[in-house]
Design a protein around this nucleic acid. Structure first.
Lengths: 147, 147
DNA sequence: AATGAAATTCTCAAATC
DNA sequence: GATTTGAGAATTTCATT
């Protein structure tokens, strides 16, 4: 990874909607050179896309939790991620080493909604759940180390 | 939250860099009406910003882990998040209910780097760590439920 | 990687519903 | 109060050097 590309990626991680004009000034290249580099980073898959960063609280989803899940019957096929994929409260699903099989990151409006979601998760994937409620989020979504 | 705003937020969560022209077509309004709504959503803090979604593997950070931390000495002031804030491998820090105090999401290049990072975390914040390695990520960063 | 030019988009005013 | 129209400014995009 080259110096200029790193600068471009850092700038776009911080503000994904800034103009190529601004980007060009920051990295010290012409607009078209920056444009070409961004195109290449997109095509190489280093940049996977762009997303608005939305405020969960403002969207009415102030409650975040981690839900560790484990199959009730470990002999059954393990297709929990697919079975849970259309529950929109689930932001992420990680397959993990250790006692549990998957770790889910979920966002809900209230404890009542969390209770309902946990029931849905257990039913949909035939799993036991262990939930860790998030009390506050000192920081989240920080840009990855670019080197 | 109004129907049109929800459509705008969904579209921008999916592609944060699309033009107002495209957005306007999707939500069935004029370009300037969409522009004004987006401005308002930004000012209200519903849209907190825009970010490029970067590929950790392409950036040379193929190893993800969750690190639960707990103070060695619970009588000391609890300022772990600030003490850990300048470790760039830490993408997120959640304060959680339960046995642990904080849950960190970290990205590193290798098991050796994870080992080094854990030592740094323990030293910087005077904490014990319990680490859960992520084996794969069925999905991550899905858009929040917008209603 | 830079230049230059055409096509598109952004931005903001005033007018309209 | 929200949306549309219209026009000038800025940006994106691409061919050429």
């Amino acid at each position: 990874m080259e110096e200029t590309d790193r600068a471009i990626l850092s700038a776009l991680a911080d503000d994904g909607r800034q103009s190529y004009t601004d980007l060009a000034e920051k990295v010290g290249l012409s607009v078209s050179a920056v444009h070409q580099r961004v195109r290449r980073l997109e095509q190489r898959g280093v940049i996977r896309g762009y997303a608005a960063r939305l405020d969960h609280e403002a969207l009415g989803l102030p409650l975040t939790a981690f839900v560790a899940i484990r199959p009730i019957d470990p002999s059954q096929p393990d297709d929990a991620p697919e079975r849970l994929a259309d529950l929109p409260e689930i932001e992420a699903c990680y397959s993990v080493a250790g006692d549990d099989f998957y770790l889910l990151l979920v966002r809900v409006a209230s404890p009542a909604d969390l209770e309902r979601l946990l029931q849905e998760i257990r039913k949909a994937a035939n799993v036991a759940t262990r939930t860790t409620v998030v009390l506050s989020t000192p920081y989240e979504g920080r840009p990855p180390q670019i080197r």
